[in-house]
Write a protein that binds this DNA or RNA. Structure first.
Lengths: 104, 104
DNA sequence: TTGACATGAAACTGAAAGGTTTCCTATATA
DNA sequence: TATATAGGAAACCTTTCAGTTTCATGTCAA
């Protein structure tokens, strides 16, 4: 099951931070690791885990590797949370049903 | 910051399973641990982590400890996901704004 | 084609996570 | 009051995780 890989990926604050960074556009490994105190290989490992969770995709441009957000993977989390949201926000749950009713 | 404790809590499949179980009502430790292959102390540790994340509350009834879901803590996750949802579902993002506009 | 730059990969370390066993404490109840 | 029941707590083990250092590879540019 891949659901666990998504929850695992978002469990780490550095990885969530990377996702936020990538929300404004794709970035090379160097650009990403420049933002953190940790070493480049450490960032590489975080990126690998994000990729395993389907949250980012990577493409090569010359000798660079560009990382782009793939936020659709968060639908897994969104759906999971939605189940529980019925217990704390009927209104949001109702609206979600509307959305899913006339969905693509 | 407590946000991390929520993401940490939901990262484990056993803990997510426990949350699902508690969505139908509060349960004693014995009732919960009976559903899993692991030992009772192991379940106790999971419950402690769920509690630290604010996802459950515990009350005593005689010699029992009853655990109840406290799903409001998932708002943290919901809000976080919502930021990214704008990139994969404009419709849901719009509706969320509506919800927050005429919010309580 | 040489050197600088961007990244990959492997081996290692320390700490946290998930689990167990063993024992102790508190509360019902026969 | 003795005993069974429900849970707490501590010590320990193993695996995973986040990080490091070191070295190798591929690509661009002078």
């Amino acid at each position: 099951m891949t659901e666990q890989l998504v929850f695992r990926a978002i469990a780490d604050p550095t990885r969530r931070s990377i996702m936020t960074m990538l929300s404004s556009g794709e970035r090379s490994l160097n650009e990403i690791s420049a933002q953190y105190e940790m070493t480049r290989p450490a960032v590489t490992k975080h990126l690998k885990i994000l990729q395993e969770g389907g949250l980012i995709r990577v493409r090569a441009r010359g000798r660079e590797r560009l990382h782009a957000l793939q936020p659709e993977a968060l639908k897994t989390v969104s759906d999971w949370v939605s189940f529980f949201s019925q217990f704390w926000d009927e209104k949001l749950a109702d609206l979600k049903q509307v959305v899913e009713a006339d969905d693509d």
